[in-house]
Simulated scan of single mutants.
Amino acid sequence: MNPIEITLQALDAAERAIPPGQPVYMLNLLRYRAYARYEGFDAAPCSGREAFHERYRPAFRRLAAGKPLVRMFSGPVLASLVGPQGERWDEAAINEYGDFAAFRSIVDTETYRREAAPHRHAALEDFRLFALAKAM
């Protein structure tokens, strides 16, 4: 299995754990490939960072149009203060959604798998995705 794939099992487990209607924040940790690696998808050569920012994000935003996606924030990871020695993330991103169902309605579609996911897979060497609740 692809270690950066968002699986149906993970979506189902998160949906059971997250109360309906609760805002959710998706924390993404991103490590880019030096060069995007497309498999079974025809695309011009580029870096992993370019594939993510210039191909994946625009495709994701098109699919998110009209959904309760409140805001997106991302930035480069400047330093690791706590974590395993040698662990490296290029960027972190937090996306806020009105609820988990809004996130799932984007990523659990054939359109996402066809138009956005190939760019994310090509771009990323490693990836973590966590669903967070707003702290009280």
Score class of each variant (00 low, 15 high):
Ala133Tyr: 04
Tyr97Phe: 15
Pro3Gln: 08
Ala131Asp: 04
Val82Ile: 03
Gln22Glu: 12
Ala102Ile: 03
Ser105Val: 00
Ser47Leu: 01
Ala133Trp: 01
Glu39Thr: 14
Pro68Val: 04
Lys67Trp: 04
Phe127Glu: 06
Ala65Ser: 13
Gly98Pro: 09
Thr111Val: 09
His53Trp: 10
Asp42Leu: 03
Ala34Lys: 08
Tyr32His: 15
Leu129Thr: 03
Gly40Phe: 11
Cys46Lys: 13
Pro68Lys: 01
Leu8Phe: 07
Ser80Pro: 02
Ala117Arg: 11
Ala101Lys: 05
Glu50Met: 00
Leu30Cys: 14
Glu115Ala: 10
Leu11Asn: 08
Ile18Val: 15
Leu29Thr: 05
Ala133Gly: 13
Phe41Leu: 00
Asp126Val: 04
Asn2Ile: 00
Glu96Ile: 10
Arg62Glu: 10
Glu5Gln: 11
Ile18His: 01
Pro118Val: 04
Gly83Val: 01
Tyr32Asn: 08
Arg104Gln: 14
Val107Ala: 13
Arg71Tyr: 06
Leu30Thr: 14
Pro118Cys: 07
Asn2Leu: 00
Ile106Leu: 12
Arg71Cys: 05
Glu54Cys: 13
Gly66Tyr: 02
Arg37Pro: 00
Ala92Asp: 00
Ala65Arg: 14
Ala59Lys: 02
Ser105Ile: 03
Ser74Ala: 14
Tyr38Ser: 04
Met26His: 10
Asn95Gly: 02
Met136Phe: 04
Gly21Ile: 01
Asp42Trp: 03
Asp42Gly: 05
Ala135Ile: 05
Ala65Trp: 02
Arg62Phe: 01
Met1Asn: 12
Arg61Asn: 11
Asp126Ser: 09
Pro23Ile: 05
Pro76Glu: 12
Arg71Val: 05
Tyr35Thr: 13
Ala102Arg: 07
Phe103Ile: 09
Asp99Trp: 11
Arg71Lys: 14
Tyr38Ile: 00
Arg128Gln: 14
Phe100Ile: 01
Arg49Glu: 12
Tyr97Gln: 15
Arg104Tyr: 01
Ala44Ser: 13
Gln85Ile: 05
Phe130His: 10
Asp126Met: 00
Glu91Gln: 09
Glu125Ala: 15
Ala93Glu: 13
Gln85Cys: 01
Ala93Phe: 08
Leu81Lys: 05
Ala131Gln: 04
Ala10Asp: 15
Val77Arg: 02
Leu132Gly: 11
Val70His: 12
Ala51Leu: 15
Cys46His: 11
Arg128His: 10
Leu81Val: 14
Arg55Pro: 07
Leu29Glu: 07
Leu27Met: 15
Ala17Trp: 07
Leu63Trp: 12
Ala14Phe: 02
